[in-house]
Design a protein around this nucleic acid. Structure first.
Lengths: 207, 207
DNA sequence: GTCTATAGAAGGATAGAC
DNA sequence: GTCTATCCTTCTATAGAC
């Protein structure tokens, strides 16, 4: 199936995804999306009625997709260490293929937090502690991971993979001055982040 | 320049800072800035000519301010550990008082990386490795910190304090479901982040 | 279903009075 | 220096032909 054969609605959606993740809701122009899709501006309204509806479709698709990526971690029947290594391999590879997603999502949620709430209606998050306790009770006692420290640790883990993409623009400028290649940095990060987190967990709160 | 001029110009600048950090360049409206400053829309153009110039003034002020915050770390004559603890105390406190700054800066730089290059013309970054080596050669050998690992470690350190603010919108939604208070989480993070990084450095690459 | 043409509103910018 | 009035462009959205 070639680009031309694709259904119009699909073409519109993909073009909207391109333009919205690049420019954001406020910076995106319906005209740009139409040009990108190779169709007339009016057709956008025929299929999606308003810019807001088109944006919501794109936003929710991307948000659901990225949170679905977190689920398989809990399905695996492996050690906590292996899960951390698996997570960074999978997650950073996904972000390498979708580098503008973190900046797009974080920013649009900050501008309008209500958007993400509808996405979360279908996702369970409040049973995180019991899931972790059931699957990794022994390891968590060994590492002295308490219910109170979970938010600190979870955000530390996620930040190590998400931040390089959210801060991509400035990191590329800084790395250029330091003669560091950003793509190589990302490849190395898959291992580094896992090593870093595991080392921290092993060594924290140990007397 | 009279006192009255200075007051008006200052009022405009502060209002622009409010509105731009809240809505971003694309989402901000000159009208909103004028209302916020309690003056007429035309006066914005009298003092700053265009929206772009007003935005640039705000952007560069904020960017210079936040990078200036990193410098004192290297002035202190203390151990690497103490510098890390000092950094998180100072940096997270600053971000608590300016919570929208990370999201604003990262996003605007991603949209237009050229903006940050002019700011960096005055800032030295390429001598980071020699500064670290001179001040902390012994500790860095002890922790097996090499020139190649500096980008990985630096971004890890910064991400632990910046990410909670860049991802504030979604974290507040998730924390609400988990019954976690975001402000308390930030207070705890000043110590947690330092403990986490120091534990990781001590335990990585150790046989 | 897809196009052309255009309405209607918003927003940045300027002219000119005071 | 500050205001009112207004220009001009851009953008979303709709009407209507085919």
């Amino acid at each position: 199936m070639t680009e031309k054969d694709r259904q119009t609605e699909e073409k519109i959606f993909e073009s909207a995804m391109e333009v919205f993740t690049e420019k954001g809701m406020d910076g995106a122009r319906m005209q740009d999306i139409a040009i990108h899709a190779g169709i007339n501006k009016s057709l956008l309204h025929y299929y999606y009625r308003t810019k807001e509806r088109l944006f919501t479709a794109v936003f929710e698709k991307i948000a659901r997709e990225i949170f679905a990526k977190f689920a398989p971690v809990f399905d695996e029947n492996t050690s906590l260490e292996d899960k951390i290594r698996f997570f960074y391999l999978e997650h950073i590879t996904f972000l390498q293929n979708n580098p503008r997603v973190p900046s797009f999502l974080l920013n649009e949620i900050n501008r309008n937090p209500a958007r993400i709430k509808t996405v979360f209606d279908n996702i369970n998050i409040d049973n995180l502690w019991s899931m972790l306790s059931n699957q990794h009770g022994d390891e968590m006692r060994k590492y002295h991971i308490t219910k109170e420290s979970v938010p600190q640790i979870m955000t530390a883990i996620v930040s190590l993979s998400v931040f390089p993409f959210a801060a991509r623009g400035i990191l590329e400028v800084i790395f250029e001055k330091m003669d560091v290649n950003f793509d190589e940095y990302l490849e190395e990060r898959k291992k580094f982040a896992a090593d870093f987190v595991i080392a921290a967990l092993k060594n924290m709160n140990q007397q």
